[in-house]
Design a protein around this nucleic acid. Sequence first.
DNA 1: CGGCTCATTGACGCCTTTCAAATAAGGTGG
DNA 2: CCACCTTATTTGAAAGGCGTCAATGAGCCG
Lengths: 252, 252
Amino acid sequence: MSTQSTICAIPVAAPVRSSLRADTVSCARCALVRACGVAGNGSVAFADVQQLVEDVGPFRGNQFVFRAGEPFRSLFAVKSGMVKTVQTDAEGRAQVLGFYLPGEVLGLEAVDPGVYPVDGVALESTRLCRLPFDAVSHVAQREPEVQQHLFRLFSRAIGQHEGRSWDVGADQRLAAFLLDLSTRFAQRGLAPEHFRLAMPRGDIANFLHLAPETVSRVLARFREQGMVDISGRDVHLPKPEALRALLREAAA
Amino acid sequence: MSTQSTICAIPVAAPVRSSLRADTVSCARCALVRACGVAGNGSVAFADVQQLVEDVGPFRGNQFVFRAGEPFRSLFAVKSGMVKTVQTDAEGRAQVLGFYLPGEVLGLEAVDPGVYPVDGVALESTRLCRLPFDAVSHVAQREPEVQQHLFRLFSRAIGQHEGRSWDVGADQRLAAFLLDLSTRFAQRGLAPEHFRLAMPRGDIANFLHLAPETVSRVLARFREQGMVDISGRDVHLPKPEALRALLREAAA
DNA sequence: CGGCTCATTGACGCCTTTCAAATAAGGTGG
DNA sequence: CCACCTTATTTGAAAGGCGTCAATGAGCCG
């Protein structure tokens, strides 16, 4: 809420932002602060975190940030671009588990098993910050504020998964998906009503447990009803309230 | 792996167990150790945790352990019985998000928002340990081992949610559900092939995004095929391999 | 400009839900 | 201990939503 400046190259919530160039600035503190939604700008607790992060990338689309089965070493904070996590079973079936926008942290599910249980795949040209977990934990040991941020980061991820656990129809799933993206873009200071889908329809469909054809059809209907304006991967939400109203209706 | 004794009244993995009575023993250390699957039996890191926990219950079936909207203060470790978490939207629709067996910890999703986003409801007579989160965090600040346990506890919860995110047919969902329960019971030293469902069919159906009728039908078919032996809420899995084979088949 | 991947649109089929009713189980009070 | 009531579970039949298959069209890169 306080400083509007762009810390560590990740857009932060701010009504008005100017240019952002900070490729030389680490993003760990920003990632933790932003990801946890805490205004820790003035504290010195994150100074140590900034020391141990490393910029990685840019990754191109479809390039792996990490692969399932690799030993877990680091969390990753998205600086720009977008990343998806995908789980693949023994029969080769794939399940998209999440999309990660700038300012969001991925890899949390790897802490317990000690190996990444999913693939991390860049959806477009993407830059990230690598956060060695051992080192971050060590800092958290000294800095209560950092520890709390991490706890909240984990907790939030659980809450997000649970929020997606509702059994609703295709329309409501798409509406919720678009509104969720809109909200998350807004939290990073980006326009909530106009954004770009970095992922193909198939990924959206897989993520939402729908067929790609169904996604197309529902989006087409949304467009006919004037609820959304989508051409290709560019999305415009003229009336978010209409989508929100959909979510209040009965399930399929 | 080491001690087979029942720590803090929560059954722990052991080939053979004798009587268990430990209502006077706190379960925090056990909960953390067991929940994280780490053999920290010999360490002294959890000594402080044991000091600050409080036994609560027994709760009767359908009694609330905590309610959605209440300010978050504590995590809860199940000592005996079973608990479900349920999210309810503005229209009164409910979604069962999880079942918690003895030795498992609930409430993690409440850390970030600061309020419980779900109801915690006992499914049968249930005793728990209350773990004040502030105090636990404080101990984690001093004890790296405790901090790591907590991180893994959070991480595991994320992984469990992601493991349930597969889009499969009703048969496979039920099979996975039964096998999951079986595994989790086994991890607590209980018989993996014979257990009791503390929740009504409706809760199972809701949790799995199915209609109660579908659950009945699928279980009836499983019984006809000799894959499971269910009478009422008592379950016997004579051939877990048959269920596992089902999961390898193509999705619906 | 050619070949490719991705997105869209239509028709059909199947799995699951919904609606309806019977049966069983559990709990309470007499 | 039994009768009764309430809730839970099971079973049947029909409707509907979504997936699958197939084909067209649009966008993109070489």
